[in-house]
Lab assay of single mutants.
Amino acid sequence: QEELVKAFKALLKEEKFSSQGEIVAALQEQGFDNINQSKVSRMLTKFGAVRTRNAKMEMVYCLPAELGV
């Protein structure tokens, strides 16, 4: 569980995922086979993730800066 949270936060820091499906796929690539869209959705809510525009003006998920991840 701890490893999943770390990987999840690291992915969001990249600010390149525009959908929950993309986050699920990226986590599965890292070996988290039991991850699915509903789990990702709950984690996004739990950590207060928001959708914002990145440098390329794409809408992407990211974590609020005050979490200091």
Rank of each mutant, 00 (worst) to 15 (best):
Asp33Pro: 14
Lys46His: 14
Leu4Trp: 05
Gly68Ala: 07
Leu4Met: 07
Glu58Thr: 05
Leu4Cys: 15
Arg42Trp: 13
Ile23Gln: 00
Val69Pro: 15
Phe8Gly: 00
Leu67Thr: 15
Pro64Ile: 05
Ser18Lys: 15
Lys46Pro: 00
Phe17His: 06
Met59Val: 09
Gly68Ile: 08
Leu12Met: 06
Glu3Asp: 11
Glu3Ser: 12
Asn54Lys: 02
Lys6Thr: 12
Gln28Tyr: 09
Lys46Thr: 11
Gly68Leu: 07
Lys46Leu: 11
Met57Ala: 10
Gly68Glu: 15
Asn36Gln: 06
Leu67Arg: 08
Phe47Trp: 07
Ala7Gly: 03
Phe17Ser: 05
Asn36Leu: 05
Val50Ile: 14
Ser38Ala: 14
Gly48Met: 05
Lys16Cys: 11
Val69Ser: 15
Gly48Arg: 07
Gly21Glu: 14
Cys62Met: 12
Ser41Trp: 08
Ala25Leu: 13
Glu14Thr: 12
Ala26Trp: 08
Gln37His: 10
Met43Phe: 07
Val24Gly: 03
Thr52Leu: 12
Glu29Ala: 12
Glu3Met: 12
Lys9Val: 14
Leu63Tyr: 04
Ser38Met: 11
Thr52Tyr: 08
Val60Ala: 04
Met43Leu: 14
Asn34Ser: 12
Ser38Phe: 13
Gln1Trp: 14
Gln28His: 11
Met59Phe: 12
Gly48Leu: 04
Met57Lys: 11
Tyr61Trp: 15
Phe8Asn: 00
Ser41Ile: 08
Asn34Met: 09
Leu63Glu: 02
Asn54Cys: 03
Gln37Phe: 09
Val60Asp: 01
Met43Pro: 00
Gly31Glu: 02
Ala26Val: 08
Asn36Ser: 11
Ile23Val: 04
Asn36Val: 06
Leu67Phe: 04
Val60Cys: 02
Leu44Tyr: 01
Phe8Pro: 00
Ser41Asn: 11
Ala26Phe: 11
Leu11Phe: 05
Tyr61Ala: 01
Val69Met: 07
Tyr61Met: 02
Thr45Ala: 11
Tyr61Ile: 04
Asn34Thr: 10
Leu4Ile: 08
Ala25Glu: 09
Lys16Ile: 09
Asn34Phe: 15
Ser18Asp: 04
Asp33Glu: 12
Gln30Gly: 07
Leu63His: 02
Lys9Gly: 05
Ser41Tyr: 11
Arg53Asn: 08
Ile23Ser: 00
Gln1Ala: 10
Ser38Tyr: 15
Glu2Cys: 15
Pro64Gln: 05
Ala10Arg: 08
Leu12Arg: 00
Ile35His: 01
Val40Asn: 00
Ser41Glu: 15
Glu22Phe: 04
Glu58Tyr: 04
Met57Thr: 04
Glu29Lys: 11
Gly68Arg: 03
Asn54Ala: 02
Gln1Asp: 13
Gly68Met: 06
Glu3Trp: 08
Glu66Ala: 07
Phe8Thr: 03
Ser38Thr: 12
Val5Trp: 10
Ala49Ile: 05
Ser19Gln: 08
Val69Thr: 15
Arg42Ala: 14
Glu3His: 10
Leu11Pro: 00
Ile35Tyr: 01
Leu44Trp: 02
Phe17Tyr: 15
Gln20Gly: 08
Ala7Pro: 00
Glu58Val: 10
Val5Pro: 04
Lys9Asn: 05
Val24Glu: 05
Ile35Val: 13
Leu27Ser: 00
Val5Gln: 10
Leu4Gly: 01
Val24Trp: 04
Phe32His: 05
Asp33Ile: 12
Gly21Lys: 13
Val69Tyr: 05
Glu2Met: 12
Phe47Thr: 06
Val60Met: 03
Glu58Ala: 05
Glu15Pro: 09
Ala25Trp: 09
Glu3Phe: 10
Ile23Pro: 00
Val50Asp: 04
Glu2Leu: 12
Thr45Gly: 07
Arg42Phe: 14
Ala10Met: 11
Leu67Trp: 04
Gly31Phe: 03
Phe17Pro: 03
Gln37Trp: 07
Val69Gln: 15
Ala25Arg: 11
Ala49Trp: 03
Ser19Trp: 07
Cys62Asp: 02
Gly68Cys: 06
Cys62Tyr: 06
Glu3Gln: 12
Glu15Met: 13
Lys13Ser: 09
Gln1Met: 12
Arg53Gly: 04
Ile23Thr: 00
Ala25Val: 11
Gly21Asp: 13
Ile35Ala: 06
Glu2Tyr: 10
Glu15Tyr: 06
Ile35Phe: 04
Asn54Leu: 03
Val69Trp: 03
Glu58His: 05
Leu67Asn: 15
Lys16Asp: 03
Leu27Val: 01
Arg51Leu: 15
Glu58Met: 07
Lys13Ile: 10
Asn36Thr: 12
Lys13Met: 13
Ala49Pro: 02
Lys13Arg: 14
Leu4Tyr: 04
Lys6Arg: 13
Ile23Phe: 09
Leu12Val: 04
Met43Thr: 00
Val60Phe: 03
Ser19Phe: 10
Ala55Gln: 11
Lys6Gln: 13
Met43Arg: 00
Ala49Cys: 04
Leu27Phe: 01
Ala55Val: 08
Ala49Gly: 05
Gly21Cys: 03
Met57Ile: 03
Arg51Trp: 12
Lys46Tyr: 14
Phe8Lys: 00
Gln28Lys: 15
Glu29Val: 09
Gln1Leu: 10
Lys6Val: 11
Leu4Arg: 01
Ser38Pro: 09
Ile35Gln: 03
Glu29Ile: 12
Glu58Asn: 06
Val60Pro: 02
Gly31Arg: 03
Lys46Cys: 06
Leu12Trp: 03
Lys13Ala: 12
Ala7Trp: 05
Glu22Cys: 03
Arg51Gln: 10
Cys62Phe: 05
Phe32Lys: 00
Phe17Ala: 04
Ala55Leu: 09
Leu63Val: 04
Gly31Lys: 03
Glu29Asn: 11
Ser19Thr: 15
Glu14Ser: 13
Glu66Pro: 08
Thr45Phe: 08
Phe32Trp: 09
Glu29Ser: 12
Leu11Glu: 00
Asn54Met: 02
Thr52Ser: 10
Lys13Cys: 05
Leu12Thr: 01
Ala49Arg: 02
Arg42Ser: 14
Glu66Ile: 06
Val69Lys: 05
Asn54Gly: 05
Ser18Val: 11
Leu67Cys: 08
Gln20Asp: 08
